[in-house]
Design a protein around this nucleic acid. Structure first.
Lengths: 163, 163
DNA sequence: TCTGAAAGTATAGGCGA
DNA sequence: TCGCCTATACTTTCAGA
């Protein structure tokens, strides 16, 4: 996980905005040949810097328009954590699980279609044995939701000169 | 925003797993011609069901390995909301802004490289005029982080028969 | 729906640090 | 050895019939 060079930062910045940009266009952008860019992309994937390419879907269009954040507490018994993780990961509506500092153990993000489905999901989550307490925050409206972005720095062709 | 038919659900399920899958491969998967699939994809983009294609980047590799959720309260003056939105959106580290039910007004998700940068970001956020109160929850470890997924239902070739 | 031209991608072989 | 190059063969896309 060494720091990325400028070329890789440009490639990542570009692909995190448009994941279908062609290798050819990327090569022209960074001033390298296509095979060189292909090699870099392969390496970024192999190294786990790029974890995948995805279509981003509007949640409301696919029955996931209702979001909530749920703070969880659970007993500190050995094995409880693994059991909780497994149970939560099997819930398709649980999109994020974060271990957090503070009184709560986990903060999770849930997406479902309706408040009724949210109620059902919470029932299932509360039924997970080790979990002792949940505290839900329902999202009324999502104002911004954007992916991790990469700062590309100055464009490649300004690298030299231009004091 | 009518409900998606089975073919579109398969296309979305596939592209949300592999956003670089070729139209040809998708066409073979759903049993339609390439132009037909191309038309469907164009329409899904036009209709806003697919909002884009992106490379997913490992946050730690690009200096965004530290996450926090920050609950915000702000004065209910007219105009305050718009000012807060604008100020938050200009912070590159603010990845999500959710308007929530409950005592807090907003719940936002922040990603930065280090806890020092987190402190700086919080200082800037607290300096936004209308904001009266912040309550941060620092993420110690992210256990799961996955995109909205689409249930494809039964595979296309099982549509008929097979009682 | 088909088909050929254009665009994009993969692979092989070679060069220089 | 590694990263990059050129050249070429192959695949995919797209527009017109």
């Amino acid at each position: 996980m060494q720091p990325l060079d400028r070329v890789n930062r440009v490639l990542l910045a570009e692909l995190s905005r448009d994941g279908r940009k062609t290798v050819r266009a990327l090569a022209a952008l960074v001033g390298l040949s296509e095979p060189a860019v292909r090699d870099r992309l392969d390496k970024l994937s192999r190294d786990g810097v790029v974890t995948g390419y995805r279509a981003v879907v509007e949640p409301r269009a696919v029955g996931a328009g209702t979001a909530a954040f749920v703070a969880l507490r659970f007993s500190p018994e050995p094995g409880a954590r693994a059991a909780v993780n497994t149970a939560l990961e099997h819930e398709a509506c649980v999109l994020e699980i974060h271990e957090v500092a503070g009184e709560d153990c986990y903060l999770i993000k849930v997406r479902v279609g309706t408040t009724g489905e949210l109620a059902d999901a919470l029932d299932r989550i509360r039924a997970i044995p080790a979990i002792s307490h949940t505290n839900s925050t329902v999202v009324l409206r999502t104002i911004l939701e954007r992916p991790v972005t990469v700062q590309s720095g100055r464009p490649i062709d300004e690298q030299v000169g231009n004091s």
